[in-house]
Design a protein around this nucleic acid. Structure first.
Lengths: 149, 149
DNA sequence: ACGTAGCTTGACGCTTACGTCAACTTTGGG
DNA sequence: CCCAAAGTTGACGTAAGCGTCAAGCTACGT
């Protein structure tokens, strides 16, 4: 399984490059800049088994695969997934290339999540409407006191 | 035992119309049923100085005022306020009858919160749109494998 | 040789809003 | 009188997602 870690070309990359080359490995600091996350967060994700960068001695090296996973992680967070949810999805995602049933499961999870998010938004809409009404009430009250807004 | 609260639902101007009689005092257990909160939560709110029911011996008795405040608390939570936010708002609210400047401040806080909530909803809308697109992609992928959804 | 920049692990801290005992006291019913 | 229900305080636990030291390693430039 680890057969693709064959070549260890250490060509020095331009320090400030917009997009890392596909086969380039990044240090943790470079990852931080690329993705705007803290090193602590990256180590945390690793502790939670969401990513597993290889090591060169002690130091972490993030491959293209790790970057892809991190991207999915951050995307998942935007979707409101917990890290645990994301871990499971990533696991399923890995299997997805072979096990179509798992891919289906991922899909279903996502559909479910979509439902949750839409429900959340609807609640939020209600709360917003309520608050607006409160504000109208407050405006009237202030108006009655001769305060102009 | 706890016979259902007689709901003499005539229209009242009181915002607490779904609540017990206006001058009735409730025990903590009755409050829990009325508002669907736990006793722990009520004591917690009290510890945080959001409500201060009077005592009869050791036991708490919640008056109409307490009920009104609790309602505002729960409403505030729906609006996404933290309990600390709510405490400040309640304090301002108390003063509001006399200090118009404070009422104005409450109003401004609420406006600010509204902005936050609308921003949240917009983010959520974006996330939803993204997720929907992902789902479309997933559908295609599954379709290519001959899986029907 | 030396400093420093970047990296490492470990471990405790933080925040919010309660949950969950534990050990009592008070109250009402039979 | 006795018991169970309901109430009380106090204190510790929990969850998420990291932040923030602490202390030490190591490569690199001067």
């Amino acid at each position: 399984m680890d057969a693709m870690i064959a070549q260890d070309q250490r060509q020095r990359p331009d320090p400030l490059r917009d997009m890392p080359e596909a086969d380039e490995v990044l240090t943790i600091g470079e990852m931080c800049q690329s993705f705007d996350v803290t090193a602590r967060a990256l180590r945390f994700y690793e502790a939670k088994e969401l990513i597993s960068p290889r090591r060169e001695g002690q130091r972490r090296l993030y491959t293209r695969r790790d970057r892809a996973r991190l991207k999915l992680i951050l995307q998942g967070k935007r979707f409101g997934f917990s890290l645990e949810d994301i871990r499971q999805l990533l696991d399923l995602y890995d299997l997805g290339d072979q096990q179509t049933t798992q891919l289906t499961k991922t899909y279903e999870l996502a559909v479910e999540r979509l439902g949750i998010m839409e429900a959340q938004r609807d609640e939020l809409d209600v709360a917003i409407a309520d608050l607006k009404q409160q504000l109208a009430w407050g405006r009237d009250l202030l108006k009655a006191r001769g305060i102009d807004i």
